[in-house]
Amino acid sequence: MNSPEALAQTAYRQVIEARAPTLSGSGGIRYAVLTDPGRSRVFLTILANEGGGNFNREIVAFDDIEEAIADQPAETPFGVKVFRVAFIGKSNNNAGFLAAALVHAGLLAPSEVKHKYLKIGDWPAFEAGVLARDDAETFLFPPALPEAVQVFVSAGGVAPVADKPGKKNRRGGNRLIPVEAAPAEAGEGDHADHP
């Protein structure tokens, strides 16, 4: 049951929002690259899918993405299923949509082996570049619910998770996955960066 506490929003800094073609090339996804308010960590999230495939809406830490492929030998192609460990949700499309975002960002490339990818680019430089950017918008997760739903949830009701009007919620749908709050910085002077 979703409680009002479970629906509390966490603020992030949205540095990039972009459209990427899916790995099959049959459609596209929208994704965002985020940082925590203290600019210590980078996150990715899938915002939308132009096609009919479901995915879990959650914030994925960039270091969890890196860790998912840390054991992959250099120059050796790998399948996108390795990214499943970075997600809490279990949708089959999570890993593929994340890989599509990483290809678009220049961090993965298709290999000569069908459905296999190579790690490319300078991942530390990408992360440092995102953290250094000042042009960011506030990104709240999960997105705000309509006021009528907020009142219903505050009264002890369960928040709906289906996001398409007229569609019933199906198992594995585009559900919001609760995530831990972005880490607050403990260092001196960091409090000025927080909203």
Score class of each variant (00 low, 15 high):
I69R: 06
I69T: 07
A70W: 05
A70C: 10
A70L: 11
D71K: 15
Q72S: 12
Q72I: 15
P73D: 05
P73M: 06
A74P: 07
E75T: 09
E75N: 14
E75C: 09
E75H: 12
E75G: 11
E75W: 06
T76I: 13
P77Y: 00
G79P: 03
V80G: 04
K81T: 13
V82K: 08
V82N: 03
V82A: 10
F83Q: 02
F83E: 00
V85E: 12
F87A: 01
I88S: 13
G89V: 02
G89M: 02
G89F: 00
G89W: 01
K90G: 13
K90T: 13
S91C: 13
S91F: 02
N92A: 14
N92C: 08
N93V: 07
N94G: 03
N94Y: 00
A95Y: 00
G96N: 08
F97S: 01
F97D: 00
L98S: 01
L98Q: 02
L98Y: 01
L98V: 04
A99W: 00
A99S: 08
A99V: 03
A99D: 01
A100T: 04
A100D: 03
A100Y: 00
L102S: 00
V103Q: 01
V103G: 01
H104K: 12
A105Y: 05
A105K: 09
L107P: 00
L107W: 02
L108C: 08
L108Q: 04
A109S: 15
A109M: 11
P110A: 14
P110Y: 06
P110W: 05
P110S: 13
S111C: 10
S111L: 08
E112L: 14
E112A: 15
E112Y: 10
V113Y: 11
V113N: 13
V113I: 15
K114G: 10
K114W: 13
K114V: 14
H115D: 14
K116H: 15
K116N: 12
K116Q: 15
Y117F: 14
L118H: 04
K119S: 14
K119G: 08
K119C: 13
I120C: 05
D122S: 10
D122F: 04
D122R: 06
W123R: 13
W123N: 06
P124I: 11
A125I: 09
A125W: 07
F126A: 07
F126N: 05
F126E: 04
F126Q: 05
A128S: 12
A128F: 05
G129K: 06
G129T: 05
G129E: 04
V130R: 03
A132L: 07
R133N: 14
D134H: 10
D134Y: 05
D135E: 14
D135S: 13
A136D: 09
A136F: 09
E137P: 02
E137G: 08
E137T: 10
